[in-house]
Simulated scan of single mutants.
Amino acid sequence: MQQTAYLPLALALAGMLLSGPVLAHSEQHAAQHSAAIVKEQKPWGIAGEPGQVSRTIEIGMSDQMRFSPDQLEVMQGETIRFVHRNQGKLLHEFVLGTQADLDAHAALMAKFPGMQHDEPYMAHVAPGQSGEIIWTFNRAGEFDFACLIAGHYQAGMVGRIRVLTN
């Protein structure tokens, strides 16, 4: 009987411990948003420079939980300006990554739906608005993109980018 008295305390403590990284994650993104873009090499590339854009690719986002197009091919070394147009009435986002990274981030978003994040490989687009990211694909391979808002990823709001070698 005494053990059950400690259960609420243990759950509260676990919640506090788990929320620390999320709060730090939010604070880190807020700081990055006000500062210059931090260039960090990722398996799928690195933040690009506007003056080095090779081409622009427009991507539609819909409330049917789809991107259009959802399959892309780019050449290794290309710097792409992605222009995202949210044609729906819900907030959507575009996040580049590997399948494993997107799965992990989607799981966090499901647990913490209000989690704030702002990385150079992400764009959050309000209904009826557009957003953009500039990304340099300096590594060949197959990579993914998704909307990681809780429920959107699970409903199939995903796409794939094949980065081909020259």
Rank of each mutant, 00 (worst) to 15 (best):
S34E: 14
T79W: 00
R160W: 04
L148K: 00
E132T: 05
I57H: 01
K42A: 06
F94Q: 01
R81P: 06
G45L: 05
G20Q: 12
A36E: 12
L7D: 13
M122T: 15
A146K: 04
P69A: 03
L23V: 07
G156P: 09
M122H: 15
Q64E: 15
L23N: 04
M157S: 00
H152E: 08
V125Q: 01
T136L: 08
I149L: 09
G15I: 07
F145Y: 07
Y121L: 02
G45V: 07
H105V: 06
M75T: 03
I46F: 09
L13N: 03
L7I: 14
Q154G: 08
M65Y: 14
K111G: 11
F143N: 00
G88P: 00
M61T: 02
E119W: 11
Q32H: 13
A30W: 07
G97V: 03
R81W: 08
E40A: 11
M65I: 08
E132D: 14
Q129G: 06
A104L: 13
E93A: 06
P69L: 08
A30V: 04
E78Q: 09
Y6E: 14
A31P: 01
P120F: 05
E58A: 13
M109K: 06
R81V: 08
G45F: 06
W44Q: 00
L102W: 02
H117N: 05
Q116P: 10
M75Q: 10
E73C: 11
G51D: 10
P21E: 04
D63Y: 07
C147W: 01
M157P: 01
R139C: 07
D63H: 09
S19G: 06
T4K: 13
S34Q: 15
G77H: 04
V125T: 05
